[in-house]
Computed example of a mutant assay.
Amino acid sequence: MTDMIETAKRALGLVDLTNLNDDCTSADITGLVGRTVTDHGSVAAVCVWPRFVAQAANELKGTGVRVATVVNFPEGGEDTDAVLAETRQAIADGADEIDLVMAYRAFVSGRKGFAEEQIIRVKEALPAPVLLKVILETGEIGDPLLIHAASNVAIAAGADFIKTSTGKAAVNATLEVAEIMLTVIEEARRDDGERVIGFKPAGGIRTSEDAASYLALADRIMGRNWVSAHTFRFGASGLLDALIATIEGGGHTPNQGY
């Protein structure tokens, strides 16, 4: 149990505490923000709909917790001008991180160049030090070889993180997909030791045991000292409560949600 407590403490600072529910309200965002700083440390970020970025940024002032938002979400559409407009507004409202859904349907249909160009253009719209996380929607891509290829495309186009899922698909994060994506990140690290690419599993990660499995995988592929909030995030809504319960000796608490 001691090992699990230490793992839960490690995981807590890697959480992107998320509310992307369709019926999310301003009151829900205030509640979300209120959970970010705990007796055991702070989460890395909140991840909210674009319409709540300004509120979250204002309410999180002074906490050190970052504000992430989603664009082209969850469809991964092809209207790049609209995606750029959404991105620029989010930055103006105070977003620190942009989670962009890759145009995965275009990619799967053979239009790799379109998917890559959209990521490049969004990356170009981001002032430093705003981070770009690219969501592959791996459950929809399906084919492991295509997931490997999509990871490479996102990295080549400028992604700071590659992220598994929107949490809205029938299949979201899995350890099998995580292994593919982390392997691509390791390959990229070997090719360019200066550039840091992070990994974010999202969707369905609800227990301390879930978190421990992903961290163990990252340690095995990337090395024990690689994981930090600069390189690894969990996209989740219920995971934080489970981690706190573990730290405080209550084991894990199963949660539903993103």
Rank of each mutant, 00 (worst) to 15 (best):
E248T: 10
E117A: 14
T80S: 07
Y258K: 13
S213W: 03
L132I: 10
P129A: 02
A216E: 12
T207P: 11
P201N: 12
V101I: 12
I247G: 01
E194Q: 13
E116A: 15
L17D: 03
S109C: 01
R224S: 15
V184I: 08
D192Q: 02
K112S: 11
E78T: 12
M181K: 04
V33G: 04
T183S: 15
G94L: 08
Q256I: 11
A159S: 10
C47R: 11
L32T: 02
D210R: 10
F73A: 04
G249E: 09
E140N: 07
V108E: 03
A56R: 08
G62L: 09
A68T: 06
G193Y: 01
N58V: 07
L175D: 00
D16C: 06
N72F: 04
I98R: 13
L240I: 13
I180D: 07
C24W: 00
V122R: 04
M102R: 09
P254Y: 14
E248K: 09
A92I: 11
K163R: 11
R233V: 01
A90R: 11
E248Q: 14
V65R: 05
Q256Y: 12
I29L: 13
G34Q: 14
D241I: 13
W226M: 00
V70Y: 08
M102W: 07
H230Y: 02
L60T: 12
G158C: 09
A245F: 01
G34M: 14
D79W: 01
D143N: 15
I244K: 13
T183V: 02
A115H: 07
D81V: 09
V184R: 14
V134C: 10
T36Y: 05
I5A: 14
T30G: 12
A82K: 13
A103Y: 02
L20R: 08
G158E: 08
E86S: 15
D143W: 06
E86G: 08
D81T: 09
V70I: 13
A90E: 10
T63Y: 05
D28M: 11
S42N: 15
A82H: 01
L60W: 12
R35T: 10
F107G: 08
P129E: 05
L217R: 09
V67N: 10
I155G: 10
D99Y: 04
Q118N: 11
T174N: 08
T164W: 02
A85V: 08
C24Q: 05
D3A: 14
L136Y: 11
L60D: 12
A170W: 02
V130D: 03
